[in-house]
Simulated assay, not measured.
Amino acid sequence: MAESLDMFHRAKQRTFSGLTRDAEHRWTGPFYFIQAADPQLGLMKAWKDGNCDGGGDEWTEEVELTKQAVEAVNRLRPRPRFMVLCGDLVHSMPGVKAVFSGHYHRNAGGYFDGLDMVVSSAIGCQLGEDTHGVRVVVVTADGVVHRYHSLEQLSTAGMDEDLRALLEA
């Protein structure tokens, strides 16, 4: 465990000790990835209203632009190796019932004053006993239902049947 924790302390002075010329000397061919930033849901309305400290109670424009970005990236050929989304994800959270995050590298969360904080474990390095996976989140008119799925389960069986049934209702 100590060795895996040390992995997160290897970045120093704009270098990463695991990414050396000796370790990465084999080139496997060109590739590309997509870097996107700052969907910042809610900022466009807040900016237009002149209330950037508050406001932002509508996300319509940013959601449409984000959909446009995803659709454009999905059409690219050859497909990018991966996509990284950086920066501010939200400006404000109108009517939010749950906040989903990562970075803890294990499943966790809590509930306070009507807000569910959901921390999903990692696709990559695990710091607990959770399997490598993703969280499936189903949003209906009645609420939000979410469950963590291992990559193996998702690949072989897909999402749980009860979650799939919610989409058909």
Rank of each mutant, 00 (worst) to 15 (best):
M83S: 14
P94M: 06
S121P: 01
A169G: 15
Y104V: 13
D160G: 05
E62C: 06
W47V: 06
M159R: 06
L89F: 12
P94R: 06
H103R: 00
F82K: 03
L85C: 08
E61T: 06
Q126I: 08
G158I: 06
F112T: 01
L166W: 12
M159H: 02
Q126L: 13
V144N: 15
Q153K: 13
E71S: 10
E24S: 02
L41D: 01
C86Q: 09
V136F: 07
C125V: 08
A46T: 06
R147N: 04
T28E: 09
F33H: 15
K67E: 12
F8K: 00
T131N: 09
D22T: 00
G29R: 07
S101M: 04
K45Y: 01
D6S: 10
M44R: 04
V136S: 09
G158A: 09
C52A: 00
V90P: 06
V118M: 01
G102V: 03
D88S: 04
A72S: 15
E62I: 10
M93P: 02
S101E: 05
G143F: 07
Q13F: 14
G110P: 04
L85Q: 07
I34R: 08
D6V: 08
H132V: 00
L166Q: 07
F82S: 03
I34F: 12
I123S: 02
M117I: 14
Y104G: 00
L65E: 03
L166N: 05
T60R: 14
G124R: 07
T131I: 00
M44F: 03
T140Q: 03
A122Q: 07
G18R: 09
M83Y: 03
R77K: 12
S92E: 06
C52R: 02
V137G: 02
H91S: 03
D88H: 09
V118E: 01
D6T: 07
T28Y: 05
L163W: 10
P78Q: 04
M1T: 14
G54H: 14
R147P: 02
L163H: 11
K12T: 09
S155H: 15
F31A: 15
V138K: 11
A108P: 01
S121A: 13
C52E: 01
G109S: 08
P30A: 05
G87Q: 01
H146W: 04
G56Q: 01
G110Q: 03
A11L: 03
E152F: 13
Q126D: 03
Y32H: 12
F33N: 07
V84C: 05
D53F: 13
D57R: 14
A69W: 12
L163Y: 09
D53Q: 13
V139C: 09
K45T: 05
E61C: 00
L89K: 05
Y104F: 15
A11W: 06
S101T: 08
S120V: 11
F31M: 12
G143H: 01
L65G: 00
S120H: 03
C86N: 15
N107P: 00
G50W: 13
P80K: 05
Y32K: 04
R75G: 04
V84M: 13
Q153D: 15
A108L: 06
F112N: 02
